[in-house]
């Protein structure tokens, strides 16, 4: 689904079903301009301090649990005068309503498109975004069944001034190798490139035309990411400077299990992007460019 780029990214690794982009969901409302809704979750804006909260004068040895709350010292509303009791009732009403509304909003946000979300989608999005966005379609409706590798080659200017085109670097394979045998894979290996590619695919059509701001952002992000990775791989040899990059994806089906009689094609499918010129703005900290060399460390 067009996880047009936000939180979770769970959708990214759980994405999918046989055809990618399968869920015929509504257009993703990712970029809704909204106010931080959190204040609404905090009607009383009050969050007190338990260190001072010794409301119940307790025994000072580990007492066995007493299961009789009725006999604990009066510390609830029972101990309050009518004026305070009314205030408590008011607070109770506000907190209850806020909690119920919030829960309803969360439910509608994760529920499939339905009558209510179609009618009040805007209001729900304004409540949910940006801080309560979530996506729990964990490996659902179907787990991803393809390995999508992002590969890149570059045109570099070598130290002798010559222009050369490098081989394809399979950055995903490098990620995979880094993850192999790793108890604590880093997000930089597991998520960065994978989700950058998802972001790109989700914000571009099949002719690689961006869909506005997010499309443009995804291009620059992907470019900065692959240039950094190429430089770390010393693409083009020591001291060579990347001038242009060309990115492609290689999608292969996961072979069906041995016990299954299913057949799927084992031919990879490629999606190739045009050559992208690399400017100074595309060199992140840690790339080989002379300008950033010093700032990197």
């Amino acid at each position: 689904m067009a996880d047009i780029g936000k939180r979770g990214g769970m959708d990214a690794y759980d994405e999918g079903s046989n055809p990618r982009h399968e869920p015929p969901d509504e257009p993703e409302p990712a970029a809704i301009d909204s106010h931080p809704p959190d204040d609404r979750a905090a009607p009383a804006g009050l969050s007190p301090d338990e260190r001072a909260a010794g409301a119940a004068p307790p025994p000072n040895h580990p007492a066995p649990p007493q299961y009789d709350s009725a006999h604990s010292p009066p510390n609830g509303i029972a101990a309050l005068s009518l004026r305070y009791q009314i205030a408590v009732a008011l607070a109770l009403a506000v907190v209850t309503v806020a909690a119920c509304v919030h829960l309803g909003m969360m439910f509608l946000h994760v529920a499939p498109s339905n009558t209510v979300t179609k009618q009040h989608g805007q209001a729900i999005d304004e409540w949910v975004y940006p801080e309560f966005e979530q996506n729990w379609k964990l490996f659902a409706p179907n787990p991803l069944q393809q390995n999508i590798a992002v590969q890149v080659r570059a045109e570099v200017r070598a130290t002798d001034g010559g222009i050369r085109t490098t081989r394809w670097y399979d950055l995903s394979a490098l990620d995979g190798a880094a993850i192999d045998g790793n108890l604590l894979p880093s997000h930089t290996e597991q998520n960065a490139l994978r989700r950058a590619w998802d972001f790109y695919v989700g914000t571009h059509d099949n002719e690689n035309r961006p869909d506005g701001l997010r499309g443009a952002l995804s291009e620059r992000y992907l470019r900065r990411l692959v240039v950094l990775r190429l430089d770390r791989e010393q693409a083009g040899g020591q001291g060579a400077v990347v001038q242009q990059v060309k990115v492609r994806s290689r999608t292969t089906n996961v072979p069906p299990p041995q016990w299954s009689t299913e057949k799927v094609s084992d031919k990879p499918a490629f999606r190739e992007l045009p050559w992208w010129p690399v400017t100074e703005a595309d060199r992140a900290a840690g790339t080989r460019d002379t300008r950033t060399e010093a700032g990197a460390q």
């Binding site: 690794y13 759980d14 046989n18 179907n142 991803l144 069944q145 990620d175 996961v254 299990p257």
Partner: peptide
């Protein structure tokens, strides 16, 4: 709703993704 969860093979697939 997913066909792989219905046909009982779903768990096989994530375990065979390189990532």
């Amino acid at each position: 709703q997913g066909s792989r969860w219905q046909d009982g093979t779903a768990v096989y697939y994530p375990l065979h993704l390189d990532y």
